[in-house]
């Protein structure tokens, strides 16, 4: 029984790690602040949940499991709040979300990145940029 729990827990830890890795990829690849934040925050809470759940299964029911639960509760409180604050700050400083369809364009003729406050409205779809 314990053997099986260790295997399931280990699988969950690996799944959580992969999910966090996916999130990191999303942060690098997604087009604007809000979608990047979406990738980071969702996979962060999800990945941490999977990892902590896996560790809890491996350790069995003891004091460490309770501490892992508190870690999880802390992460579930703070990460969404931090994502909210970041998105709030980005919106407050004038970052507009990109609306429309996108295609990944080669790096040399890339559309201007959304690095600063945009003066005009939504940039529209990626192909029309520049």
């Amino acid at each position: 029984m314990h053997e099986a729990l260790v295997w399931i827990g280990g699988g969950l830890v690996i799944a959580g790690t992969l999910l966090s890795l996916l999130g990191a990829g999303g942060v690098l690849r997604f087009p604007d602040v809000y979608t990047r934040l979406h990738a980071a925050s969702l996979t962060d809470t999800g990945g941490a949940t999977l990892v902590l759940l896996g560790l809890g299964l491996v350790s069995g029911l003891q004091l460490d499991t309770v501490k892992l639960f508190f870690c999880w509760a802390f992460i579930m409180l703070t990460t969404p709040a931090a994502a909210n604050a970041l998105a709030n700050a980005a919106y407050g400083s004038g970052h507009k979300p990109r609306i429309g369809t996108f295609q990944i364009v080669p790096a040399d003729k890339n559309i201007p990145a959304d690095d600063g406050p945009a003066e005009d409205g939504p940039t529209g779809d990626g192909s029309s940029g520049k």
């Binding site: 802390f74 409180l77 709040a81 909210n84 604050a85 709030n88």
Partner: peptide, 15 residues
């Protein structure tokens, strides 16, 4: 504007 942040901070500071 920052109501979520304030609620979470209010929860977290005692902890």
């Amino acid at each position: 504007h920052h109501v979520v942040l304030r609620v979470v901070a209010k929860l977290l500071i005692p902890l």
